[in-house]
Nucleic acid binder design. Structure first.
Lengths: 354, 354
DNA sequence: CTGTTAGCGCCTTCAG
DNA sequence: CTGAAGGCGCTAACAG
């Protein structure tokens, strides 16, 4: 069952069938109708492989993420898929899990499958790999990149805005001892978030303290670990901000498990606003990064890059998109312990166990 | 750059190159070595599209899930992808979101892409769609199905075991008023879980009460809603079991939000044991369903089905796999309120707000 | 506007 | 054990 069968049944040539399917304007409506009917009758589906082979385009978009098990990414994938499918693209998903081997292998898979474009939505990736893609002329979109590879667009997340809001929110509540559990600092995205935190603190005249800056890994386990370290400090912080929501959930777990009350004894702020954040108890105050914008921006950039091809890349490269962030205040932030009684705080009592 | 380039460089014919790549045993080792070297030098990748076209196999497996944003599924996808990639397959993921249109479209996408096999890991799907796949001779694996379509295997989850354990665990603690928040009951999988609950109750002589059986939708919102209904009952349950962990998280959120203590005032049990379950506070007691087994079972079944083709389907159909479930006791279950003071409980006090 | 024809890159008989 | 030749199903020139 192929295009020929359809042609015979509609009593036209295969070329006409092909043109009809591809909505070429120059087809006699009468013949077109016959063709569509034949297609209907036969329940014919064009063979994607053959089309891909001859046209050189697979009509597939690659999406590389850090780890699919971090709920932020499924939400992103969902959006991305919606956009892609709406434009007639299939998507190929790969998770790197911060592993160089996996990154290598997924770039390879993308190339082998003759992907039409790829969105790199990881917290970080080996740049040489991106060059491999770029060298093949494959359109690329990525987040927060420093380098600018030729046929690539960048989506810039405005971390500063949201993080600044969060720091000031905490400061207004009376917090001065604010800690940060970052992601792995060798990843550029993590570094940006961490830097934004330090700068925001600086801005309002709070001296960032080295021992209140701990490195996590964007997992709940990392957050838990980080919180434990922070809470057993002689001078423990009264608030902990986190590089993502998973970390914040880990922090909450550790704090609650140690008998602390949130937010009475400790305020916590996450980042991402994954759906589950509002179902934590107490509901997590967090910084929202619109994954809708991210996904739509990525697909749109990819499509326009594919459409304009290599002609005007230079002009189009400049139209980089900025993804906004904003603080969502829920119930994990509050006035720090002792603030009301003791406006000139001495050494903290340390975590108390009721 | 194609197979011809390689052939020329290795001074052999394209047929030899093809055979070498596909590890045909009948190739002179000397020539083979020349070919591999040429491939290396040229950094040649066989064209997947062309291979797929001529062989009729896309080397892609489809994976249909209910909703990628439910954390259970990413965990499953991860496993599935690992297994599939290890065997040289790519995967195509689609979420149905319980929507008939989406189901239709994703089955269509699978067929168009000439998928080699598909795993249907949804809570439920329109059976006629599966027939469409089956009719095309596409190997199929699905979970808990009633009907047996020709080239399909079934993975049976042993809901009864885990649910029975959970019910008995609760009973031993002293609970008699046990409620269940189910998934949508028109979905077969949800029904099975719900039935297993009722039967387990029956078995130990507890009369299931209609008003303690509420229907959710496998989301946190559904769980929240269900818990609200349950907790405002005149005779409220002392324990709530849930059809999945997301529901349980919603239930916990509602209960905690109403000022109840868990497990002192209310015990909660989930189902799935998603990774985040242990990071809830208190950590969620739940029934683990091994998504590792599920994923591996699915890929294995698909592969064997593809290998044996249509020859001995009848014999092989029988080798259905059973996925075990087991209770994981954490901290959301405990002795019900009033049990110690009042062994002959009267009307409950209702939720109290401190 | 339509039909004929030549590939896209590869696998697979079939002779050598 | 190797090479030449004929498609796989489709698109895109090119003639009509």
């Amino acid at each position: 069952m192929d295009i020929r069968t359809v042609a015979t049944r509609a009593k036209v040539s295969i070329a006409t069938v092909s043109r009809t399917i591809n909505h070429h304007p120059t087809v006699d409506p009468v013949l077109a109708k016959r063709v569509w009917k034949a297609i209907e009758d036969l329940n014919y589906f064009p063979n994607t492989q053959a089309r891909a082979l001859v046209s050189g385009k697979s009509h597939t978009l690659g999406l590389i993420v850090s780890e699919i098990t971090n709920p932020f990414f499924p939400e992103l994938i969902q959006r991305f898929e919606e956009c892609a499918v709406a434009r007639g693209y299939e998507i190929l998903i790969a998770s790197t899990y911060y592993d160089a081997k996996k990154m290598e292998s997924c770039v390879r898979r993308m190339i082998e499958r003759k992907i039409d474009g790829v969105a790199v939505m990881t917290f970080g990736i080996e740049e040489p790999l991106l060059d491999r893609l770029a060298n093949k002329g494959i359109p690329l979109v990525y987040v927060d990149s420093r380098s600018r590879i030729a046929p690539a667009r960048t989506l810039n997340v405005d971390y500063r805005h949201g993080i600044r809001q969060a720091v000031q929110h905490l400061a207004v509540l009376g917090h001065r001892k604010i800690a940060f559990v970052s992601g792995p600092l060798h990843l550029h995205t993590s570094k940006l978030r961490s830097d934004a935190f330090v700068d925001s603190l600086d801005e309002i005249g709070i001296q960032p303290r080295q021992e209140w800056l701990v490195q996590g890994d964007h997992t709940m386990e990392g957050g838990q670990e980080g919180a434990k370290r922070l809470l057993q400090l002689d001078d423990a912080p009264t608030a902990i901000m986190c590089s993502n929501d998973m970390t914040a959930i880990g922090v909450m777990h550790a704090a609650l498990g140690a008998g602390l009350r949130i937010p009475a004894d400790l305020s916590v702020i996450g980042f991402d606003d994954i759906h589950i954040a509002q179902f934590m108890f107490p509901p997590l105050t967090t910084i929202r990064m619109s994954c809708k914008y991210l996904a739509e921006g990525a697909v749109a950039a990819l499509c326009s890059e594919m459409e304009f091809g290599n002609l005007e890349t230079t002009t189009h490269n400049r139209t980089d998109v900025t993804i906004p962030t904003e603080l969502i205040v829920r119930r994990t932030t509050g006035i720090p312990r002792n603030t009301l009684q003791d406006l000139n705080p001495r050494k903290s009592d340390g975590p108390k166990r009721p």
